[in-house]
């Protein structure tokens, strides 16, 4: 089983602040971490490999040279190799340009399964996973909360929905995006840490992917950020309890009180 897991290095949003004038994140001095959802993707990739009794897990990332650290961390956890797409030509990529580049790299590897986190905690778009699948022309299942069975050429998963979950059977190759309910990410091992120290991270440039210049980086990114704002806090909320009659009468009371005010 050949598995690819997409990893993004993000600022630790627990510590990040917003520049109110420029509407951008102040990233200086903020520690970088592996996007937390990607940790669940890594765990899923490793456990599928273990269940299958063999194969390789390749972590790929696109980002500045320092994003190499995220790939080394993935290797500490047991990932076999790391590939970093890093080139000035990639700078300013939106989700479309990012997905195009990642898909180009993944098609070279030609894996059976691709795992992504459901979204990154800095951009929160949840677009890159499904877009990569579209570029590759393969099916995807987003918001996977459980891998039910893995057999030759088919995987059954559960997809988390607002009102429950779907059971989805899919052929391979396939792309999944992981939610945190999927698993508990493992901790690194000493052997993994030693391997990560020695590992050679493969660097890929735009030229290696043979993508036309206009389709990469800023020029390949149709997204325009018009405005960034903090959504207004919602009004107060209250949960009613008791029997149906009690709840109805309490609700009526609340509504009356509001119209009076």
């Amino acid at each position: 089983m050949k598995i690819v897991v997409c990893v993004k290095q993000v600022p630790d949003t627990a510590e990040v602040k917003l520049d109110r004038e420029k509407n951008t994140l102040i990233r200086d001095g903020v520690p970088s971490i592996i996007n937390p959802y990607d940790r669940h993707a890594i765990e899923a990739a490793l456990s599928i490999k273990e269940q299958a009794g063999g194969g390789t897990v390749t972590a790929i990332s696109m980002g500045p040279p320092q994003a190499e650290a995220a790939l080394r961390e993935a290797i500490e956890l047991g990932v076999d190799e790391g590939v970093l797409l890093t080139d000035r030509a990639f700078a300013g990529s939106d989700t479309l340009a990012t997905s195009r580049a990642l898909a180009a790299m993944i098609s070279i590897i030609s894996p059976d399964v691709i795992f992504c986190g459901k979204q990154a905690i800095d951009g929160d778009t949840a677009q890159v996973g499904p877009e990569v699948a579209e570029f590759l022309g393969i099916p995807h299942v987003a918001y996977v909360r459980k891998i039910v069975t893995v057999s030759d050429g088919a995987i059954r998963v559960e997809r988390l929905m607002d009102d429950g979950y779907d059971v989805v059977d899919t052929s391979l190759p396939v792309l999944f995006t992981a939610v945190k309910e999927l698993n508990t990410p493992r901790l690194p091992s000493l052997r993994g840490k030693m391997a990560a120290k020695k590992a050679v991270i493969k660097k890929i440039t735009a030229a290696d992917l043979s993508i036309p210049e206009g389709e990469l980086g800023l020029s390949g990114s149709p997204t325009q950020v018009n405005r960034v704002f903090t959504p207004e806090a919602r009004g107060g909320r209250k949960a009613l309890s008791g029997s149906l009659e009690e709840q109805v009468s309490a609700l009526a009371g609340e509504l009356r009180a509001m119209s009076c005010a």
Partner: peptide
Amino acid sequence: TEEQVMIRDLARQIARER
């Protein structure tokens, strides 16, 4: 040594998280 630091960090992480 580098290995001893790795072991310290790993044990510290397990202690903190688990």
